[in-house]
Design a protein around this nucleic acid. Structure first.
Length: 246
DNA sequence: CCAGACGTTGTT
DNA sequence: GTCTGG
DNA sequence: CCAGACGTTGTT
DNA sequence: GTCTGG
């Protein structure tokens, strides 16, 4: 479900919003159509640096665990279920020690509609819906991250990758789908990011549906459906459709 | 997530 | 149907 | 013990 | 690495 989102806010704005100490990225492009395997900006508390500063850095979307033989597994590890994240071998280590926030200016869900097609048949239409903060603030999506290095190549660089955590949908989204990404409230950021937090039950308690009042949604163009389309127009509100409209 | 492909050989 | 690419 | 997977979603 | 299935 949660396989496409919007990342438009500049590193500077994100650094301010998330109280980031250090920006470790330059020249990162905004995207209104972030798909799996893209590089996304992530907020993480770096335990290897004195004082575990909050850092903004790019990571590949699709988690590649340290034991993976190649990058391919990341294609399937884009969403971690909150209910089972502590148990799953692919996520367990990251959940215990490598949690992050994936900033998003919104995300997409799809409504499958039936339209009259040729010869009296019906045709499935994937209608994208843009979901975002009512006040236009970036959302703090709960994320997990991992480091991986090609075991075949001793000179290979370390690759940082991430996944987002999903939970059951709130009432606003329930008619679209039964899952949604976890959106962390400000008060939860510290505990979630701190690598030293070892109260797993407390962490899991943070992984609940966002309040309906925080979010707003509207239909957008099906141009979103092609992952290589991009631009501000992808989040424009679609005119309400009439019974006989197109 | 959706859209689009879904294959192998030998040759440059 | 299932996998890959974006 | 070894081998093999390691994930989620939606849709009919 | 770690878990599950056989």
């Amino acid at each position: 479900m949660c396989g496409r989102f919007v990342a438009v806010s500049s590193p500077q704005l994100l650094a301010e919003h998330f109280a980031v100490d250090e920006i470790r990225v330059e020249g990162h492009a905004a995207s209104w159509n972030v798909a799996p395997r893209a590089d996304v900006l992530v907020v993480v508390a770096d335990p290897r640096t004195e004082g575990t500063p909050r850092v903004l850095e790019p990571m590949r979307w699709g988690l590649v665990p340290g034991w993976a033989k190649d990058l391919g597994i990341g294609d399937r590890l884009i969403n971690a279920r909150a209910e089972t994240v502590a148990q799953k071998p692919a996520y367990e280590r990251s959940f215990r020690g490598r949690r992050c926030i994936v900033p998003a200016d919104g995300f997409y869900e799809w409504r499958t509609e039936r339209e009259p097609g040729v010869g009296g048949r019906t045709r499935a239409v994937k209608q994208p819906v843009f979901i975002h903060d009512r006040g236009g603030e970036p959302l703090a999506l709960a994320g997990l991250w991992a480091t991986w290095r090609d075991p075949e190549d001793p000179d290979a660089p370390w690759i940082h990758s991430c996944a987002i955590v999903t939970t059951r949908a709130n009432a606003l989204l329930a008619s679209l789908h039964d899952r949604m990404p976890v959106v962390l409230p400000d008060a939860a950021w510290d505990v979630w990011l701190d690598p030293a937090t070892d109260d797993l039950a407390r962490l899991q308690g943070l992984l609940v549906p966002a309040p309906e009042t925080q979010l707003e949604l509207w239909d957008v163009s099906t141009r979103v459906n092609k992952a290589d389309h991009d631009g501000p127009d992808l989040v424009d509100r679609l005119p309400a459709r009439t019974l006989f409209g197109t």
